[in-house]
């Protein structure tokens, strides 16, 4: 197929570009929420910053988990879309991704 004739899906391209900052923002936001919860829990209990640090690490793990979950979901969507496209055009594209 001639590549010039292919229509560029602007929203799809933006979504793809958005994935990288999305991951960073997700990790940061999760750490912020978890850190805030940890800070107040620590303040109201032992007040020795241990719970705060534990919650910060928990936030990091949560952020990475949620970020990767989103990445896997997006890559599955792309795969489904490319499979549908292949069915329509009769071509085969090599499988990539996770």
């Amino acid at each position: 197929m001639n590549k010039k004739n292919e229509k560029v899906n602007l929203s799809g391209e933006l979504k793809k570009l958005n994935l990288i900052p999305y991951f960073g923002f997700t990790v940061f936001a999760n750490m912020a929420v978890s850190g805030l919860i940890g800070y107040y829990l620590d303040k109201w209990t032992f007040d020795n910053k241990i719970i705060f640090i534990i919650f910060l690490f928990f936030g990091m793990a949560t952020g990475i988990y949620n970020g990767i979950k989103e990445l896997v979901k997006e890559s599955k969507q792309y795969e489904e879309k490319s499979e549908k496209k292949d069915e329509n055009t009769g071509e085969k594209t090599p499988k990539k991704g996770f």
Binding site: F25, A29, N30, V33, T62, G63, N66
Partner: peptide, 10 residues
């Protein structure tokens, strides 16, 4: 739960 709460923040 933390993932959902952090969505509006990010």
């Amino acid at each position: 739960l933390v993932g959902e709460i952090s969505k509006p923040i990010s």
